[in-house]
Simulated assay, not measured.
Amino acid sequence: MGEILSYLAAVLPADVSAGARLLALQCALRMNAYMHVELAAGLLHGLRIDAGETCDELERARWLRVVNGPGAAGVSAELLDATLLAQSPARPDRRRAADWALRTGCPARIGETEPRLRLPGVYLGAHSDPSSGEGQSEWDRIIRDCGLHDQGFHGALTRLTVNGVLEGWRICPDSGDVHWMLAPGQ
């Protein structure tokens, strides 16, 4: 999951919204061997994003081309970056990761419907030790991978703490690394 988030941070323009990044994450993880993806309307509803707006945003970034939709049945798209074919793991593992990302980033767990908070929630969960809930990453990498701006970083992590996703977080003054602990049950 972390590799896909880093890949998306590298290929998508910095101004691509968190909602479009959440959609791109689902597309990258759910695509088939021909780089096509079908996202059902229920899945799009679960993402709590404006599918039309985010699809347009990813089309403007030349990352995907909408084939059909978005509509009542969902959206069909063709991904345009052949680098995705080299990404591992295999499709069944990617589909499980897509389901995990959807559950982890759903508003009921995050306590917010804003994609700008859900994407960091997915990122921190993906970069945490499953047994201890502890994680560590460079602050600038979190900002880049989650599409946050410097001023939004502290606010997002503070709100994730208030909402019960994180037990706590801090920035190490020597290294600039962010250390966090997921709240119990996350």
Rank of each mutant, 00 (worst) to 15 (best):
T158L: 15
R170S: 09
D145M: 04
F153Q: 04
R144G: 01
A156K: 07
D177T: 10
L166A: 10
R159A: 05
D150L: 15
V178N: 00
E138I: 07
G152N: 13
E134Y: 08
F153W: 14
R159Q: 04
D177A: 07
G168T: 07
W169M: 05
A156E: 06
L157D: 02
W180V: 06
L166P: 09
D140N: 03
N163I: 02
R159Y: 03
G176L: 06
H179W: 10
E138C: 02
C146K: 00
D174E: 13
L166I: 05
L166K: 04
S132W: 14
W139A: 15
G133I: 06
G152R: 11
S137Y: 01
S132F: 13
W180R: 07
T158F: 08
D140E: 02
G135K: 02
A156I: 14
H179P: 00
E138H: 08
I171H: 01
D177R: 12
R141K: 03
R141Q: 12
G155F: 08
S131W: 15
L157H: 02
W139N: 11
P173H: 06
G168L: 08
L157P: 04
R170N: 03
G176D: 01
S175A: 10
N163C: 01
V162I: 10
G164A: 02
G168I: 08
H149M: 15
C146Q: 06
I143F: 04
T158W: 03
I171Y: 03
Q151R: 15
G176C: 08
G155C: 02
P173L: 10
V178K: 08
D145V: 12
W169K: 00
D150P: 06
H179G: 09
